[in-house]
């Protein structure tokens, strides 16, 4: 059972061929088959793994999750098993179960990113997404994503050590995302994914008998509330680069996906919505395939072309 692939959704990201353009976003989908109770993970275009660092990380202390009116704030802090355990334990399941994956990597220094890139290259990891935009860690990461010279240096260093598909994930927490995107392209990125979470804070106030209690959580804001910001970012990036863009931000429905295509995205990543409806990715793939057929398009490329004209 599952999705009958007729090839009409096939998506080409600069030579990286996916059976469909629906990808699940880093940090919302685990390392491999964690969602297999809800979907047939191998039918997805790809999953992006939780961000992997050189050493295992424990992540942040305190409250990590808060729901907001139109999404959520997270402050996980890159908790992950580290590259060694990923390769030893998690990779095998991905291969055995035929799950297409993009490995998300994160570090604090250029040296760490280069080290990760080399390991990915040695292990013939087909595609990586470089996380230069995690808002929840103090050193590195986001800093690389907000200044075009350091971003260029970082991406270029990764490029020189990795032969697979290199995707750079951009943060919206910048003055000009276009400049950052151009720097990523110039440095040799094969594709851009945008956007990562926005910096946000929630202060929950509880007053009992005049005594005020505050719970503060600061972190990355995601979910449906960020979609217009993401669509806008993708549209602006599309005007200045010619490498493919993977759109991310608040996608919950087929209509959302079409909107990103219209803005210039070649594929999309679904993140927060996996928490709301863990089978959402598979549902959208089915709906997308139906949409292409019912409206008489030859394939998804033709649909995208029409959406952009």
């Amino acid at each position: 059972m599952g999705i009958i692939s007729s090839g009409i959704l096939q998506t080409n990201l600069n030579g990286y061929i996916l059976k469909n353009p629906i990808i699940t976003a880093s940090g919302t989908y685990g390392y491999n088959n964690e969602y297999s109770d809800f979907v047939n993970v191998s039918t997805l275009g790809a999953i992006v793994t939780k961000a992997i660092t050189l050493e295992p990380r424990e992540g942040n202390k305190g409250i990590r999750i808060a729901e907001t009116k139109a999404g959520m704030i997270n402050s996980i802090g890159l908790e992950n098993v580290g590259i060694e355990r990923f390769l030893e334990e998690k990779l095998k399941v991905l291969k055995d179960e035929n799950i297409e994956f993009i490995m998300n990597i994160a570090g604090s220094t250029i040296r760490e990113y280069v080290e990760l890139a080399k390991i990915c290259d040695e292990n013939k990891i087909k595609a990586i997404e470089v996380n230069i935009s995690c808002p929840n860690v103090k050193a590195g990461c986001l800093e690389f994503g907000t200044e075009e010279n350091s971003l260029y240096e970082l991406v270029n260093s990764v490029r020189n050590n990795y032969r697979g598909i290199l995707i750079v994930k951009l943060t919206p927490n910048v003055t000009s995302i276009e400049k950052i995107a151009m720097a990523a392209q110039k440095a040799g990125a094969d594709a851009i994914s945008a956007i990562n979470t926005l910096k946000g804070t929630q202060i929950k106030i509880n007053c009992q008998n005049g005594e005020i209690n505050k719970t503060i959580i600061s972190g990355g804001y995601s979910g449906k509330g960020i979609k217009p910001i993401a669509v806008g970012a993708v549209m602006r990036i599309a005007q200045v680069v010619n490498i493919p863009i993977i759109g991310i931000g608040g996608i919950e429905t087929l209509e959302d996906v079409l909107e990103f295509f219209a803005a210039g995205a070649e594929a999309v990543e679904i993140g927060t919505a996996n928490f709301t409806h863990p089978n959402i990715s598979e549902t959208i793939i089915k709906e997308l395939e139906e949409y292409v057929k019912i409206n008489g398009f030859k394939d998804i490329e033709e649909l995208k072309k029409e959406l952009r004209s």
Binding site: G30, R64, I65, N74, F275
Partner: peptide, 9 residues
């Protein structure tokens, strides 16, 4: 958030 151990929230 996820309720299945992936998000570490």
């Amino acid at each position: 958030a996820c309720a299945i151990g992936v998000c570490r929230g």
